[in-house]
Design a protein around this nucleic acid. Sequence first.
DNA 1: TATCCGTGGCG
DNA 2: TCGCCAAGGAT
Length: 385
Amino acid sequence: MAKAPVEAPAPLAGAFDVGGFRSELLRWFNENARDLPWRKTLEPYHVWLSEIMLQQTQMDRAVSYFERFLLRYPDIVSLAQAHEDEVLKLWEGLGYYTRAKNLLRAARVVLKEHGGTFPANFEAVRALPGVGPYTAGAVMSVAYGAHRPAVDANVERVFSRVLDIDRPVSAPEVKRRILAAAWELLPPGESRAFNQGLMELGALICAPRSAECQRCPVSRHCLARARGTVNLRPVPKPKPEVVRVDMACGILLTEGQVFIQKRRPNDVWPGLWEFPGGVLEPGESPEEAMVREFREETELSVRPEGKIAVVRTSYTRYRITLHGFFCRAEPGQDPKRDHRLHEAVEARLVSPTDLLTFAFPSGHARLTSRMLEDVRLQTLLSAVD
DNA sequence: TATCCGTGGCG
DNA sequence: TCGCCAAGGAT
């Protein structure tokens, strides 16, 4: 006997007022949509760029990057012709740099395979590097009005409350249920406003810590609101333990120039530039670690010439204290010719002011500005090795 | 499927 | 100072 087909659980209860939810959300969004730069047009390139920049990034931070980016690359063809270093420089400080690399790759795909016109069907958009299910749905619905849901963390939070889901939204089954609810609620012909409305609601009203239910246009549909569990939703996912790390790096000065190296493509901070350095070993001083790391990464022997600054930075679960030093090559070496790279794909000697044209991870960028302000810099630069 | 990728703001 | 993030995708 054949197995009985597994019935997909109806995401919404039978009594759920789908029509009311749709019209109340659409009305609210129509009256409360923020005036954002990427909402000025429905140009697919603008919508796509904004969605990539907004991945894991707060809206306020993305706005200035978006405007600068469009000034430099007004259309996809100009972006496709760009150099990766320049794209990364425009992305500097925004984080998740693979996004920028994939953006450039995708622009080149659009140029070669779609004649420079952004594709207008879901599968082609989804196939672009850096475009996942959320971004494909968002671009298709916002740029073209396609009947596709766009479920991001905002929408997951909204539904975790509307449906009063008592498990972390990271669970695949919960994600499936929320996606199904998003499909069921999606109003034919109005996906553009509806998807943006859900996200806007999550950003402005149904916020992570401070849900303002008294201002919420759909609170009468919200199960968590009825049960008094709003502040318990979404159920948080257990977080990995924070790891504290001390690092040290050396800014090597030679003949008025500074040594930098470019990080490998598949590592942390892919394609960004940095000063050689690394993690302190147990019992090691920052100076000792800097000298050791410099030798391991470049085969150059250096000696410290004074501390520049200590900057704090972090990524994912790491909290980093970065010690920055001036340093100088030991006699008998020419940094330009004698380096052998082990942790980088390229090295350069550049003048201190030219450092500002290279993209650095945040910690190294702040160290750079501290160095440029340092009164000892000119003396050290002009000194003979 | 769990983990990895950044960052600056906020209470 | 510190914990907790905030509009995902790739592997």
